[in-house]
Simulated assay, not measured.
Amino acid sequence: MSPRAVLIGPPGSGKSTVGQLLAERLGVAFRDTDADVERTAGKPVSDVFIEDGEERFRELEADAVRRALAEHDGVLSLGGGAILAEATRELLAGHPVVYLEVGLSNAVQRVGLASARPLLVLNPRSQLKKLMDARRPLYEGLATIVVTTDERDPGQIVDEIVEGLKP
């Protein structure tokens, strides 16, 4: 069993919105590993970060990704930082990985500056820029398809992904 598409990208790239639409278009189920982490932990991701720490969250996240890649045959959305784990990057090899690329200003608009996202506290715009700059090479290196999401309708993005998934 293998996902039809695995979506990666920074916060605000549209992984959840595009993932759900893509799953509908392909007639498959949608799964989000952040939701899996929340189910396992019994609390929101932000609470896992605050109460248990980022290290514990990353452990739960890596396990959620490993299980989802083995069990899910639909569209899978990974948390923005899931690709930081080397084991996760190795597991993604051979899967159709779609990097949803987004510019900083669009990401900021989508995420919002009063975000409850734990890695974006204090100066959210600056933190998001650092995070995006640091992760971009990893996203690009894993991607089999790169789709820019700036100033685009989710339907257009899905069209491009569907086209890119064709053999």
Rank of each mutant, 00 (worst) to 15 (best):
L84N: 00
T88V: 15
A35E: 13
V6W: 14
T40A: 09
L76N: 13
A64E: 05
G74D: 12
R56C: 11
G79W: 07
S46M: 04
V75N: 05
L7V: 09
R67N: 05
G14F: 03
K15Q: 06
K43A: 14
G9C: 15
G27H: 12
G9D: 10
A5G: 07
E54F: 11
A85Q: 12
E54H: 11
L78N: 01
G79N: 12
E24P: 02
E101K: 15
K43H: 14
S77W: 04
V28Y: 05
G103R: 05
G53W: 04
R66E: 15
K15S: 02
P44G: 08
G9F: 09
P11D: 01
E24W: 07
T33H: 07
A87I: 01
A35R: 14
D32L: 09
E38F: 07
P44T: 05
A68E: 03
G27C: 08
S105I: 05
G9V: 13
D63E: 14
D34H: 03
A29C: 00
E38M: 07
L7S: 07
K43I: 11
A64P: 08
V6I: 14
V48I: 07
A64T: 09
S46H: 09
S46E: 08
G19I: 04
F30N: 04
G19T: 07
G103M: 09
S46T: 08
K15T: 09
R89C: 10
L21N: 03
D52G: 12
V65K: 12
G53R: 09
G74H: 14
V18E: 01
T33G: 06
L104V: 15
S16R: 06
K15R: 14
G9Y: 13
T33E: 07
K43T: 14
G12W: 03
G9K: 13
G12V: 01
V6Q: 10
E90W: 06
G74C: 12
G12I: 00
R39W: 00
A85M: 06
L69G: 13
E101G: 03
F49C: 08
F49E: 07
A35D: 15
V97E: 01
V97I: 08
I50Q: 03
G79Q: 11
V45I: 15
G80L: 04
L60V: 05
T17E: 10
R89S: 07
I83N: 05
K15Y: 07
G12Q: 02
V97G: 08
V65H: 11
G14T: 03
L78P: 00
S13R: 09
E59P: 00
P11C: 08
R56I: 12
H95I: 05
E101P: 00
G12S: 02
A62T: 15
E59G: 01
R39C: 03
A23C: 13
V98L: 10
L21G: 14
G79I: 04
L92E: 09
A82N: 06
A64N: 10
G94W: 11
F49W: 12
G74Q: 11
E71I: 03
E59K: 10
Q20P: 01
S77H: 05
A41F: 11
V48H: 00
I8S: 12
E54Y: 08
G53L: 02
E71C: 09
Y99G: 09
D36W: 01
R58W: 04
P10K: 04
R39S: 10
V37F: 00
R31D: 04
E71S: 14
K15A: 07
